[in-house]
Amino acid sequence: MENKEDDFYIGYVDNISVKTKKTVTNFVFFGILTLITIAVIFAFTQNTFKNSTFELTTNTKIMGVYHEMPYPMLKVKTAENTFKNILLLGFGKSSANPFLKKIRNEISQLSGSMVSIEGNLIYYNGKTLLQITNDEKITLVEKANSQKLPQTKSLVKDMELKGEIIDPKCYFGVMKPGKGKIHRSCAVLCISGGIPPVLATTDENNISEYYLITDLKGNPINKKILPYIGKPSLLTGNIVQLEDWYQLQIDVNTIKDLNRPSKIY
């Protein structure tokens, strides 16, 4: 005689004893409560996201004077006598240069030319960038006129600045967070793909300033700066103003890792 009182669960037999059922029901109930608790904790402990924007699905056409000092930008008139320099970027983790090849071949001089470009805007905290996804969407409006190029102004020599080297594409909108350890690998790939490195600083009053980083001669740096990206660092260099942007001219070897925030607890 089989002992029916003796509770034994067999998965493929549909009936299940009351006691076992109760244990399983309690487990499911408790499990779902645990899931909710975990979701609440992880959701609430995220840092606040910035209101940076990437218009992934909206194309915007902008017109302005192209220049590269040394990074590709478009000087766009926003009102009478006010201009904004929009940093140009390529698709994905690439600089604008591959997308500018075609127009460079078509016209003798691109710098100083008035061009119109259609792409996706990226903006945050007063800075605007444009992602170019198609080299067909760049058209010449007016031939080069060096008078229209922006003026640079040397401001300070040997200035010390603390901050984090970021890739501006992600930082100003494409990714959240677009800085720090989580984002570091991505920033490294962006900058090695030709996107200009930018130093982001924040002062005691939480006011941020941004500096396009070049070498001491004002040429682009990409590969050499990779080991310093996404970490709090101390940079020393000369500051040059390019209208609404600053540039920081440095010797890469003088960058100091501050070994700060991304600390181990």
């Binding site: 779902i32 899931l35 909710i36 979701a39 959701a43 996201f49 990714m175």
Partner: peptide
């Protein structure tokens, strides 16, 4: 059911309390 409840809680709370998130980050997290 458990997975849906989890995703609804996490995504709902994030959208309500931290709404500048990006879709990708929301999915990743």
């Amino acid at each position: 059911i458990g997975m849906l409840i989890y995703l609804l809680c996490f995504i709902g709370i994030t959208i309500i309390t931290n709404n500048e998130t990006s879709v990708e980050t929301l999915i990743i997290r």
